[in-house]
Design a protein around this nucleic acid. Structure first.
Lengths: 229, 229
DNA sequence: GATAAACTGTAACGTTAGTTACAATTCACG
DNA sequence: CGTGAATTGTAACTAACGTTACAGTTTATC
């Protein structure tokens, strides 16, 4: 059982974008040093402000990440899926964690503490380079999001976010998002009503098809045109 | 002359937050391997999408960083001052740069290419850890900005941004920002008019004093209260 | 299959920021 | 000093989103 999970963890690490350019031994070391943790839906993987150091790699499940704005307002930032990394790894503490991560489904995390990272780094110092890489990727997404919110109006922003959530699944079929309009609004800082209005308009124009907790993107290029103004 | 600049570069690196926990030899190596570049106001240090790798450390001057949203809309993200780092350093290219950096003043940059970084890393592999650290710091700022934009209304956002720009200069005197209302608006995604309305209100309430291209923060705790709703 | 929970559709109203345009002020540079 | 550029002040109008509330629909759970 535990063994199965270890094998799964190894597979996830090997396929993760931030590790794919590094030797397999690195993924092996991480699984060997880290601890697998099972969490139920609703449980917190980590809280913003935690001072525990180290990383948590999502092996299975789905988490939602939140960030706190001034005035104790939480805003949902993004999802963490298998392969995503939570937490940080700066030297000497380096300050509190950035986000709160809550399990949306039962999930499995691989937790690697600061000292365990040090052990891995002893034989594979390039681990820090890999960590810099995924942090940079997170930075890219955060900046993109910031630029979108600042320069796009809700209608365009909704189109842009739909495309971002769909990701690069350039499969042959139309991408289908399983997400409520309420959550969509939370993700982009508008109310459900606003989301609803624009989704209805998109559906009228044949760009998407909506259902109960479900959005099918039918015309990706049309959505891109809207996102681009 | 060049020697003076090298000494300056060394000082800046030694004082930079992301290097302060590392031995001085690391800063020395970076200065030795890198090249000092002088740029005039208006010149681009790097463009978003550039595929050159490597880092640029701001040694002197001031740059504005911009990010592009869908539809070729540029939004100003932040400033880069001495000690800031531009660029990225992921393995195997790792994709285009995130931001466009434009000199607001004549500036001096220390450019360190990917291969030069590799040379430094040969003797000091911990350089990657330092790079991960400042990338994480940038991520922190970007997420904070995202959370602010999503959850705060312009009035509160303006207060929050004023405090962020003032930074941690918790000197005895009131912080003074030298920035136009136009630029402020660009920084937080609202129009100059909106900035103007709220700044006027703040001034009426004695929180700030405005002048030509100048804002003095008189009541930091009052501004914090507004930022917190 | 029945009941509750979650999600979506819709509406009236008020607020607020964007748009556009122009005038007044301050500064920089010669 | 004096001219032009940059910055700030102001205004009327429009459009859009937020707020609040409730009804209708789909799914989940037992």
């Amino acid at each position: 059982m535990n063994n199965n999970e270890q094998i799964l963890a190894l597979e996830v690490l090997q396929k993760a974008a931030w590790l794919e350019d590094y030797p397999v031994t690195l993924a092996n070391s991480l699984v060997r040093e880290g601890r697998l943790v099972r969490l139920n839906a609703g449980e917190w993987a980590q809280a913003e402000g935690d001072n525990r150091n180290g990383l948590s790699v999502v092996i299975d499940g789905l988490l939602h990440t939140y960030c706190t704005a001034p005035g104790d307002r939480d805003v949902m930032i993004w999802f963490a899926e298998p392969g995503s990394v939570l937490g940080h790894a700066t030297r000497h503490g380096g300050g509190p964690r950035l986000v709160t991560a809550v399990c949306a489904e039962p999930s499995i995390l691989l937790e690697i503490s600061e000292s365990e990272l040090d052990k891995v780094a002893k034989h594979s110092p390039e681990i820090w380079r890999a960590i810099a890489a995924f942090t940079y990727e997170d930075l890219r997404n955060a900046l993109r999001m910031t630029a979108e919110i600042m320069s796009l109006r809700p209608r365009e922003r909704i189109a842009a976010r739909l495309l971002a959530i769909a990701g690069d699944d350039q499969a042959d079929k139309n991408p289908v998002l399983r997400i409520s309009q309420e959550l969509l609004g939370e993700l982009m800082g508008v109310t459900r009503k606003t989301v609803n209005i624009h989704l209805s308009a998109f559906e009228r124009d044949g760009l998407i098809r909506t259902g109960y907790g479900r959005i099918e993107l039918c015309d990706l290029s049309g959505l891109k045109m809207i996102a681009n103004g």
